[in-house]
């Protein structure tokens, strides 16, 4: 699976989330308050709202539309109406840039 350069770490505020579009898909890249980086699909599994417009609280991302929540570490749904897990991706930071491990 290829590692793809996504966003500079500095483009994401601490305790926030940023949208990254690549190859026709949208992803959400998270930076927690202790500077840990995570990545997931960018659209809520409930109704396709962009999670990058939502609110990150600790390890939980809240969808901006209905406040469905997911754990960004494993994508598990944590609050209705989110029922289906979010797909998450491995990340690494090289030279200040977040790289996401995407499937072939």
């Amino acid at each position: 699976m290829p590692w793809v350069a996504a966003l500079p770490v500095d483009a994401i505020d601490a305790d926030d989330v940023a949208r990254w579009d690549h190859a026709g898909k949208s992803y959400a890249i998270y930076r927690t308050s202790d500077d840990a980086i995570y990545a997931s699909d960018g659209l809520c599994t409930h109704e396709q709202a962009h999670l990058a417009d939502g609110l990150l609280d600790g390890y939980l991302i809240a969808c901006p539309k209905h406040n469905g929540r997911f754990d960004i570490r494993d994508g598990s749904p944590r609050r209705l109406p989110a029922c289906v897990a979010l797909r998450t991706y491995a990340v690494r930071v090289d030279a200040g840039v977040v790289h996401v491990n995407l499937p072939d």
Binding site: H46, E47, K65, H66, L80, P81
Partner: peptide, 10 residues
Amino acid sequence: WRWSHMRHHS
């Protein structure tokens, strides 16, 4: 009503 209101917002 939880699900009804979700739909109302969608």
